[in-house]
């Protein structure tokens, strides 16, 4: 179960190749994420960021190469991993309270039946408190705003007190104020928690971020929280300066060069 070596990587990908049908999505990806790191995965849509998370979660199996999470095959430790999926694919009007949604974060098979144990409900309340929304527990999930829903999904991921938190574009469809709040929540979760966040928002780089990697079929990883020229070339290299994408890349590059905490180069 546990790692004897505390410096062993939480996530280790070794020459991972994956594709849908005949279309290659990820090509020889190697990546080690150490305990306590806050890694941000950037890259264009369709570049394979979400697929990479799904491989780590064990939702897909690599065509070749090796994925290890806590030293084991993916999917072995649901209680040690919290997952916040991309917002927006949830059924509107689904009959569930916020507390029930959070309780869905519990791993399968511990208990069965329609009721929830007081221990479990306590854990749900604690997770809601950590996500900063304890007052929403009894509300209907369907009536919440986008930012509130996102925090509920973060609380759902926190209910097992995971060591690893995987977030897939937690800021899509959320207004700037909501983004700032969620950033704060994520920063406050503590340095003991290993965080991996997928984002197509290049302005995401922050002080709390320890590593940025860019994925667009292949992977480029940097050492610090800044986006490197090499990453931009990987993401936007095929666009000229006259193309809006190329311009955006240049703007983002300039901002990234200013400092790690620069924000606002959304596209």
């Amino acid at each position: 179960m546990s790692n004897p070596d505390t410096h062993a990587p939480v996530i280790a990908l070794d020459k991972v190749v994956f594709g849908f049908d005949d279309e290659p999505v990820l090509d020889h990806i190697s990546l080690n994420i150490p305990p306590g790191a806050f890694t941000v995965i950037v890259g264009p849509n369709g570049g394979g960021k979400t697929t990479l998370l799904h491989l780590i979660l064990g939702l897909y199996r690599p065509d070749s190469g090796r994925v290890r999470v806590f030293g084991d095959r993916p999917g072995q430790h649901p209680d040690r991993i919290g997952y916040v999926p991309q917002h927006g694919n949830l059924a509107p009007g689904f009959p569930a309270t916020v507390e029930q949604v959070v309780l869905m974060g519990l791993p399968h098979g511990r208990r069965h039946g329609p009721g929830f144990h007081p221990d479990e409900r306590d854990a749900a309340r604690q997770a809601l408190t950590r996500a900063g929304i304890s007052e929403l527990a009894d509300r209907s999930f369907g009536v919440l705003s986008g930012g509130q829903r996102q925090r509920v999904l973060i609380a759902r991921a926190l209910i097992t007190e995971p060591e690893l938190l995987l977030l897939d574009e937690p800021f899509s469809n959320i207004d700037p104020y909501g983004r700032a709040c969620i950033h704060e929540t994520l920063d406050d979760l503590g340095s003991g928690l290993t965080r991996v966040m997928v984002s197509h928002d290049l302005g995401i780089t922050r002080q709390a971020v320890s590593q940025v990697v860019a994925v667009n079929r292949v992977l480029v990883s940097g050492l610090g929280p800044a986006i490197t020229e090499e990453m931009l070339a990987l993401m936007y290299g095929q666009h000229g300066a006259d193309c809006p994408m190329g311009q955006a890349a240049q703007v983002a590059h300039q901002q990234a060069a200013v400092g790690p905490d620069s924000r606002g180069a959304d596209q």
Binding site: F94, M104, H108, G109
Partner: peptide, 12 residues
Amino acid sequence: SFDPVFARTRGI
């Protein structure tokens, strides 16, 4: 019913 992809990550 709520979120099948997430449910799969819980081992369901």
